[in-house]
C-alpha cells in the first residue's frame, strides 16, 4: 500500500499539475521517437524491470476501468510510467496486447488529441453474467433506453424529450430514484464523464437548450444495429419497419475515422 493522492486540489499539487501540462507537450517528442531511439531506450532498462512496469500498467488500466472512467495519458505517465517515460509507447503496446489476450479487453484511444483511453470488452454480454446484482446493472439498463431514444430520434435528442420519456417510465429526473439516485446527475454528468453520452448546448438558444448524442464509449461498446434490435424487441416490431433507422444501422461505422465535430449532422 502506498500513499497516492486522488485528484484533490491543493497548492502543491496545482504547481505539479502545471508542470505536468508543460511536460505533456515535450512528451510528444518521446512518444513519436524513431525506432532506433526506442531500441536504445529499451536497452536502458532490464527486461525484468520492463515486464514489472507492464504488469503495473495493466493493473492500473484495469482498476481505472472498473469505474468506467476514461484514462488520460498524462495520468498514466504520472502514476505508473514515471521514469520509464522514454519507453512509454513500448510499455503501452505490451499492456495493450496483454489486456486483449488475457483479459479480453481492447484498449482504445477515444481522443487522439487529449490522449484518452478506455477499455472495450471484446466479449458479448452473456445472460447470467451478472451473478452480482449491483446498481451498475440497473444504470446500464437506463443508459440503453437513453441510447435508444437518441438513435430513434435521428442520433440527436433534446434534453426535454429525454426527460419526458423517462418520466413516462416513472423515472423522474427531479426526484431521487431508488436505483439511480440523482437521475439528472447520473445522465448529464456520470454518463457524460464515462463517455457514454455527449451533452451539449444547442447553438443559438436562449434560454439555453441542451441535446444528447452518443458518446465515443457507446459507439465502441454497442452498435446502432444492436440498439435497433433492442427497440424492436420491446415494441415487438420488425426492425425493418423503421426504414431510416434500419438503413442508418446497416452502415458500417467509420469507427476509426476522426469524428466530425458535434455540430455537424449527417
Amino acid at each position: 500500500m502506498t500513499q497516492r493522492r486522488r485528484g484533490r486540489p491543493s497548492l502543491s499539487q496545482n504547481t505539479s499539475r502545471l508542470q505536468g501540462g508543460d511536460m505533456d507537450m515535450e512528451e510528444d517528442v518521446s512518444f513519436t521517437q524513431t525506432l532506433t531511439q526506442a531500441q536504445r531506450n529499451l536497452e536502458k532498462h532490464s527486461p525484468e524491470q520492463i515486464s514489472l512496469k507492464v504488469g503495473e500498467l495493466v493493473q492500473y488500466l484495469l482498476i481505472r476501468d472498473q469505474k468506467k472512467l476514461p484514462i488520460k495519458r498524462a495520468d498514466i505517465v504520472k502514476n505508473v510510467v514515471k521514469e520509464y517515460k522514454d519507453i512509454y509507447a513500448e510499455l503501452l503496446l505490451r499492456a495493450k496486447k496483454a489486456l486483449l489476450e488475457v483479459f479480453g479487453f481492447q484498449l482504445e484511444e477515444i481522443d487522439t488529441k487529449a490522449h484518452i483511453y478506455i477499455l472495450i470488452n471484446t466479449l458479448e454480454r452473456g445472460e447470467g453474467d451478472d451473478l452480482k446484482v449491483n446498481d451498475n446493472t440497473a444504470k446500464l439498463g437506463l443508459l440503453t433506453v437513453i441510447l435508444s431514444l437518441i438513435f430513434m430520434k435521428g442520433n440527436t435528442a433534446k434534453e426535454v424529450a429525454i426527460w419526458e420519456t423517462l418520466r413516462r417510465l416513472r423515472v423522474d429526473p427531479g426526484e431521487r430514484h431508488e436505483d439511480f439516485g440523482d437521475v439528472k446527475k447520473l445522465v448529464t454528468d456520470e454518463f457524460v464523464k464515462q463517455k457514454y453520452l455527449e451533452y451539449n448546448k444547442v447553438p443559438h438558444t436562449d434560454p439555453p437548450e441542451y441535446e444528447f448524442r452518443w458518446g465515443p464509449r457507446a459507439i465502441k461498446e454497442t452498435s446502432k444495429l444492436k440498439i435497433l434490435e433492442f427497440v424492436s424487441k420491446i415494441q415487438q416490431k420488425d426492425p425493418k419497419s423503421w426504414v431510416t433507422q434500419y438503413r442508418d444501422a446497416q452502415e458500417i461505422p467509420r469507427s476509426q475515422a476522426p469524428r466530425a465535430s458535434t455540430s455537424a449532422r449527417s
Binding site: 502506498t2 497516492r4 493522492r5
Partner: peptide
C-alpha cells in the same frame, strides 16, 4: 497483485490521509 509495486486497488480509491488512517 503479487508484485511489490505501488499499484494497489486501494491506493487508487482513497486519499492520502484516508490511507494513513487505514
Amino acid at each position: 497483485n503479487i508484485a511489490e509495486n505501488e499499484v494497489t486497488k486501494m491506493a487508487m480509491d482513497y486519499a492520502e490521509n484516508e490511507l494513513e488512517l487505514f
